[in-house]
């Protein structure tokens, strides 16, 4: 099984030079730590910044400079600042190439649920619905099963959905799967030491297995 850091590390391999990328809160934020230094990419923060840098040193902390998770951040050289309407013009307008976000559930046709659990406190969707409705490529970072062992890769989402037919790829603690345009989770890679059988037993939705499934490697 992959740690959260390893999920982030595996997702970082999907990043290509020249991309503008929006990273969600949680594991997706960690992806920034693993993007190879020789790639030219720009991280977008939907509260109004292109060019997120590392967390600042203590003496450089600036309350006027935060990310969408309300953490203090820095800006890389060449950054740009803008208002919220312009930020979502970038997102909905298709100018952000890649969105990486977390999920509570994903269905085999690419629906995602990550904003609401009925009966529990509802905190809101933030920018997630705009992001999933718009990005050309959406990769989800998630745990394959809930804490009580229920699969989160489903035939249909049971929770209120955030967006329809939008997820392209999932990196979970057990596997990398792609969503087939015809429906179904196409198994592409296994986490080290995890068998195809285990992934199959922990995937409630349709799992498509073609040929040998390679094990992920980490440097």
């Amino acid at each position: 099984m992959l740690t959260k850091e390893q999920i982030a590390q595996r997702i970082a391999k999907e990043v290509k030079t020249g991309q503008y990328i929006n990273l969600g809160i949680g594991i997706p934020t960690l992806v920034a730590n693993y993007i190879p230094k020789d790639l030219d990419v720009v991280l977008q923060s939907e509260n109004g910044l292109l060019g997120i840098g590392p967390f600042p040193t203590e003496d450089k902390v600036d309350p006027d400079l935060i990310n969408a998770g309300k953490q203090t951040i820095s800006m890389v050289p060449g950054s740009a600042l803008f208002n919220s309407a312009e930020s979502f013009a970038m997102i909905r307008g298709g100018h952000v190439h890649l969105t990486i976000l977390g999920a509570m559930e994903v269905s085999e046709n690419g629906d995602i649920a990550n904003w609401k659990i009925p009966g529990k406190m509802v905190k809101g969707m933030g920018g997630a619905m705009d992001l999933v409705a718009s990005a050309e490529n959406i990769i989800v970072a998630m745990q394959h099963c809930s804490k009580d062992g229920q699969s989160k890769l489903l035939t249909e989402c049971s929770l209120p959905i955030t967006g329809i037919k939008c997820v392209k790829k999932i990196v979970s603690d057990l596997a990398v799967v792609e969503i087939s345009p015809e429906g179904g989770f196409i198994l592409k890679e296994r986490a080290p030491g995890v068998s195809v059988e285990e992934i199959k037993s922990k995937t409630e939705g349709k799992l498509i297995i073609e040929g040998e499934i390679p094990e992920m490697t980490f440097e």
Binding site: E46, N83, S84, A85, S87, F88, I91, R92, M125, G126, G127, A128, M129, D130, A133, S134
Partner: peptide
């Protein structure tokens, strides 16, 4: 949705009573 909120406010200020968005 945050982008819808931003655009509804922008539209309000810009005299655009309604618009279409994919969000939601």
């Amino acid at each position: 949705p945050q982008g819808t909120l931003a655009e509804r406010v922008r539209a309000g200020g810009a005299g655009i009573p309604a618009f279409f968005t994919p969000a939601g």
